[in-house]
């Protein structure tokens, strides 16, 4: 009762594309973060599926690390978004344009 590896890859690619789509269309910084998380988790699905497929644990271990890194990234990101809100009164990523040329 094993599911073929290609389905996992398809799933993860779908997730990745959803994330990418979110990044391209959303202007809210929080939404952007969430979309990025989707992309990272797509990678995690891949890693775990492939780890199972290849029969080694490397992928799973990396998936753990990736989760940790994603969490750290979110922590930093939220901090930045917080100061962003404090300075610009908005979390729309297109609002800060003090440096456009």
């Amino acid at each position: 009762m094993t599911v073929g590896i290609e389905y996992y890859v398809l799933l993860s690619m779908l997730l990745f594309c959803i994330g990418l789509f979110g990044i391209l269309t959303r202007r809210n910084a929080l939404m952007f973060l969430m979309s990025v998380e989707l992309m990272v988790n797509a990678a995690n699905i891949n890693l775990i599926a492939f780890a199972f497929y290849h029969g080694n644990l490397t992928g799973q271990v990396l998936a753990l690390f990736v989760m940790a890194l994603a969490a750290a990234e979110v922590a930093i990101g939220l901090g930045i978004i917080l100061v962003l809100y404090r300075n610009f009164r908005d979390v729309d990523v297109t609002v800060p344009t003090t440096m456009r040329w």
Binding site: L64, A68, V74
Partner: peptide
């Protein structure tokens, strides 16, 4: 609340890494 949440993030992940 936010500070605590961030702190939690750090330590929670850390427990994930400690479990193995």
């Amino acid at each position: 609340y936010y500070m605590v949440a961030l702190l939690f993030l750090v330590f929670d992940i850390e427990t994930v890494l400690l479990f193995p």
